[in-house]
């Protein structure tokens, strides 16, 4: 066992081991391993094995509670991350209820977006998009159960193309148990809303990292994306309680 008195050495060893495991786990056709986009919050990025969301990988995001159906907070969370990537984004939707001005408000400009209304074919269309390495990311809005095979296909396509795949999962059922079924996604996020403390300036979200391959899960309270897609750790949360309280073993 490593004791906590030598954190630097332990961290290095752990990082090395994780890298090796990651290299074993992924098929070796990816472009450049280890590329990632950070959330812009150091506390969260440190908890992720890639130092952020890995680019050539599948990530899931879903709303929580009454927002499970519209997943408005989760949508903004995803849009904020994409706003900090460069290059075109394919957004595959089942039905068109997305409002582009709202995406532009967190920095994801409409010029970068191509929408595809795929109806029931969201997953195949996403896979198609992931083969095109010129895209920065492919987002798919998906409701229903995701089979392990389907998620594995997306993960493989994302790895091969080096394109980030994001599944925005929606459901008519509040906190649908189907959203917690295992999948091949690298990370899985639940984005829940919290009451704001002072007026309507910036919304507060509860970010739950409920799955993280090669890392630990965790929960954070953040202030919602600003006009450039950046999150900020909630002041009260970072000052007061220790993060360890919110983190569970993965």
């Amino acid at each position: 066992m490593f004791s906590s008195s030598h954190p630097p050495a332990n961290t290095l060893v752990l990082r090395d081991l994780r890298d090796r495991i990651a290299r074993i786990g992924r098929s070796d056709t990816g472009r450049e391993p280890g590329r990632s986009v950070g959330l812009g919050v150091p506390a969260i990025d440190q908890a992720l094995p890639a130092g952020g969301l890995a680019l050539g990988a599948l990530h899931e995001a879903a709303g929580a509670g009454p927002d499970t159906e519209q997943a408005a907070a989760a949508t903004l969370f995803v849009a904020g991350i994409l706003a900090r990537l460069s290059g075109p984004v394919l957004w595959v939707v089942q039905q068109a209820d997305l409002f582009a001005p709202g995406l532009a408000a967190v920095g994801l400009h409409p010029q970068r977006l191509v929408f595809a209304e795929a109806g029931k074919n969201v997953l195949p269309v996403m896979e198609e998009g992931l083969r095109h390495t010129t895209l920065a990311s492919v987002v798919g809005e998906f409701s229903g159960r995701l089979s392990l095979i389907a998620s594995r296909r997306l993960q493989l396509a994302a790895e091969q193309g080096g394109v980030m795949a994001v599944l925005l999962r929606r459901s008519h059922v509040f906190d649908d148990p189907a959203l917690n079924e295992p999948s091949s996604a690298m990370t899985r996020w639940r984005v829940g809303v919290l009451p704001s403390t002072g007026g309507l300036a910036r919304a507060r979200w509860r970010l739950d990292l409920t799955r993280c391959r090669g890392g630990e899960t965790g929960s954070w309270i953040v202030e919602a994306c600003d006009a450039t897609g950046h999150l900020t750790l909630d002041a009260a949360f970072s000052d007061g309680s220790d993060q360890g309280v919110h983190r569970r073993a993965g």
Binding site: P88, L90, P110, V114, F115, A116, E128, G129, H132
Partner: peptide, 24 residues
């Protein structure tokens, strides 16, 4: 990147119908 995206657009448009692939 702008130029390179055309093949993807073609394939999606042939699959879903041209009206279902769009920008805003």
């Amino acid at each position: 990147r702008e130029v390179d995206i055309a093949p993807l657009i073609d394939r999606l448009a042939n699959r879903l119908g041209a009206a279902r692939v769009y920008r805003v």
